[in-house]
Amino acid sequence: MFEKLQQAFWKALTPDLVAETPNAEPAADAMLAPAVLSALGGATNLKSQQRVALTRIRVQLQDPTLVDEMGLKAAGITAVMILTGGVVHLITGLS
């Protein structure tokens, strides 16, 4: 009981760091607009995607060199953070 409560507590504080039971991955275009998906290198370049907050989407890419930052900005993405390991954070909300 305590272990489940502790896991729920940490999950609330750090939602992207605590592993859950695997859920069905949404379709590549379910969360991302076609223009955004294209600027990320297409659906085949997408390993995973996760909404981290109301204004942020975390994606992991096969090849991060295919990212077109200008294309993302033209598609309405406010800011782009490219991290190591093919992880990209897309800031979608208020600037």
Rank of each mutant, 00 (worst) to 15 (best):
Q62E: 11
M31F: 04
S48W: 09
S38Y: 00
Q7N: 13
L40S: 06
L54E: 15
A33D: 09
I82G: 05
L46P: 00
G42A: 13
F2I: 10
D16A: 11
R56K: 15
L94P: 08
V87Q: 14
F9E: 04
L17F: 06
N45R: 09
A28C: 00
R56L: 12
T14Y: 15
A43E: 14
D68S: 08
L54F: 08
M70T: 07
G42T: 12
A12I: 06
Q7W: 12
V67N: 01
Q62S: 12
L17R: 14
L66W: 01
E20S: 13
P64R: 09
L94V: 04
F9K: 12
L17Y: 07
G71A: 04
V67F: 02
H89D: 14
D63M: 08
D63N: 13
A43Q: 10
G85P: 05
V52M: 15
Q50V: 05
L66D: 01
T21P: 02
Q49L: 15
E3M: 09
V52R: 15
P26F: 08
Q7V: 11
L46Y: 03
L13F: 10
T78N: 12
F2W: 08
F2S: 12
G85H: 07
Q60T: 11
E20M: 06
V80W: 02
T65G: 06
T84C: 03
R51L: 03
V59N: 03
G42I: 13
D16N: 12
L54Q: 15
P15Y: 03
A35Y: 01
G42M: 13
T92S: 11
P34Q: 02
T78G: 04
T14F: 14
Q62V: 15
P64Q: 10
E69S: 10
I82A: 09
L72K: 05
I57Y: 06
L37S: 03
V67W: 02
A27E: 14
F9G: 02
L37G: 13
H89P: 00
L37R: 13
T65A: 07
L46V: 01
A39R: 10
V36D: 00
A74W: 01
A30V: 03
M31C: 01
A27I: 04
L83T: 05
H89W: 06
I82S: 09
G85W: 10
L5Y: 05
W10T: 00
I57M: 14
T92M: 11
L17V: 09
T55L: 05
